[in-house]
Design a binder for these strands. Structure first.
Lengths: 346, 346
DNA sequence: GCGGGGAGTTTTAACGTTCAAAAGGGCGTC
DNA sequence: GACGCCCTTTTGAACGTTAAAACTCCCCGC
């Protein structure tokens, strides 16, 4: 494996010149640059990342804790997210390092250790919980991080975040169902303890009120995110005798439950009742009729996450104690409604 | 951030002694060890991984290419796999580095680059395809790797692998359905081009023949892995007039299609017809009745992958040109049938 | 002709760790 | 008491890179 020294010898220049050829080519005379470049190619030289990181004390690696869900409750869009995140990281010559850690504050020593041993420069957090303790902890330790998802239950966010406007997403779904002629639109939600759920619920309620649609007793809470619960809640809506003709579900799984219940009752999804889900998970396109769903713009999210994290790092070189302003970067991105058969004009 | 030097000064020993305290504690006199250990704890010292890697030229990082599927066709158990893989890596003080690459041989320069720049020691491959070119390429470059999944279509495997015996899995499913009283068991498969599918199909066929059950025209191929196709194939089976009372599906998605079709015909899953899926994806437990499914032992798989990769690395220190035997490590693990309502005694 | 300046290049000195070899100290042996 | 040996600790060098300072030309102005 060729080193800088060998390239230097081959091109008959000093090591530093070769280094400059790669990191600051404008400093070289054009002919020298060309000569060095040729030697680099000829010897198939690749800089040793460890040596570079040791010198510059930047590893260009970003830590991401792979979430461990209770069995059966899986993150159906995680592979999409990871793919986007990797892509965004690579666009800035960085990579993603995966690790596991206990949930909550219990896991913080793991984060701290990875940072102290210089395995990563910073972290991308996801699966934020209400009053998530990780953000504040990392902030105190001055460990760079950015969160995918707001921390619910706080008046001010404990750090930079990127999130998707779930309320707007649900409002869009409501308006779409309204446009296709639905007038009694129900909402399948989660327990009140979920900040995420309350946010999305508010989007549904506001949109309905704006359009002059009823909301009273049209929101049903599901105890867990299963097809079974979605079906049960749908049954509840249909049995309420309000003539429900549209259902906005807070997740694709619950929406699938709705589809099942409609089918069981001999109703035609997309004709008798319009249904939308959330996340545009693989399920949405695999089911039939296809499930209209609210898609989070993963590529954009990932790009913003990486951008915030990298600009944070370069800024943190001047950690001015006195003017320690939060200056948290906050990005709220707009989701996109992917329309499929489940909401076809009825 | 404390360094070895600072710890050494604090404990009044040389740097090397502190290094030894961590890497070869038996070399120190007990009292010295204790003094050094105390200083390490007091200063909260953590070795700098970059410096260590530079010196030892081992980064303890394993590359894994995050698969990019055509939209809609997702890897439902990827998060399980990644979680297990991370855990196994961490058990040996290693970590997983994620990256993206074009599929097939096109992506090999990315692998080569990561290895040349010393970002990773080796790779875990997955999503192997028939005649996958990656394995041979890596082998030629003498880049350590291990494959999750056999390379189908080869007479000898091009490298070490860990895989799950899909044939045995399907045979188990057949026997289970037989035990619960089913006598005409169909099989939902994929196109013939999939080596994976042929393997699992053979398991179904052999088990049926062993039990004296019919197989003729009881295997149906689905063009793609969707609920729609699963439903269509199930309809085909039911319409064939053979009195099918059991269905072994090659994937959970296809099984879901079977469930839907049964429901649509007023048949009760688990009573009239028993159904099994494959992978025990989150869907299996989220659907109702729960889907009996064949679970791949992810933790065990991951542990074997990491074990093979790490022993490979320590062996490769003696790359004896003359006795260049393949010596590929090959592990075939047994899957486990997770029984749920979809196959309840009928 | 000589100092000033700038572009291009080299030299020096790290970054934090580990390996190899050398040094020190205690102890038994003859 | 000199020698050798083992056990522990130290010294010196190296891993491959980059930041910063130093050096070398060469051109310019006065």
């Amino acid at each position: 494996m060729a080193t800088l020294k060998q390239v230097a010898a081959h091109a008959e220049v000093s090591v530093q010149t070769v280094s400059n050829a790669l990191n600051a080519p404008h400093r070289l005379r054009p002919d020298t640059l060309q000569r060095v470049t040729k030697s680099i190619e000829l010897l198939n030289y690749r800089p040793n990342r460890n040596a570079r990181s040791l010198r510059t004390s930047a590893v260009e690696l970003i830590g991401y804790c792979v979430p461990s869900w209770p069995h059966g409750q899986a993150h159906l869009v995680m592979d999409q997210f990871l793919h986007s995140l990797c892509g965004a990281a690579e666009a800035t010559a960085r990579h993603i390092l995966l690790f596991t850690a206990p949930v909550g504050v219990e896991g913080m020593p793991v984060y701290e250790d990875l940072h102290a041993r210089r395995l990563v420069d910073g972290f991308v957090l996801s699966q934020t919980e209400t009053h998530d303790p990780r953000h504040g902890w990392l902030r105190e330790q001055r460990i760079p991080f950015v969160s995918f998802g707001r921390v619910w239950g706080e008046t001010t966010q404990p750090g930079p975040f990127v999130d998707v406007d779930g309320a707007v997403g649900c409002a869009t779904a409501v308006r779409h169902l309204h446009e296709t002629g639905r007038r009694r639109i129900g909402f399948l939600s989660w327990p009140k303890t979920s900040g995420l759920a309350e946010d999305r619920l508010s989007g549904w309620r506001n949109a309905c009120q704006e359009l002059g649609l009823p909301t009273k007793s049209l929101a049903v809470r599901c105890a867990e995110d299963t097809i079974e619960e979605g079906a049960r809640a749908t049954a509840e809506l249909l049995d309420s005798g309000q003539g429900v003709d549209g259902i906005v579900a807070i997740s694709d799984i619950l929406a699938l439950g709705a589809l099942r219940e409609l089918g069981a009752r001999g109703l035609t999804t997309g004709v008798d009742v319009g249904v939308t889900g959330f996340d545009d998970s693989p399920l949405a396109s695999v089911v039939s009729p296809g499930l209209t769903s609210i898609r989070q713009p993963m590529d954009e999210i990932a790009a913003e996450l990486i951008a915030i994290l990298t600009e944070k790092q370069s800024n943190s070189e001047v950690p001015d104690e006195s003017t320690q302003q939060p200056s948290s970067t906050e990005r709220l991105l707009q989701p996109e409604l992917v329309i499929r058969g489940s909401s076809a004009p009825g």
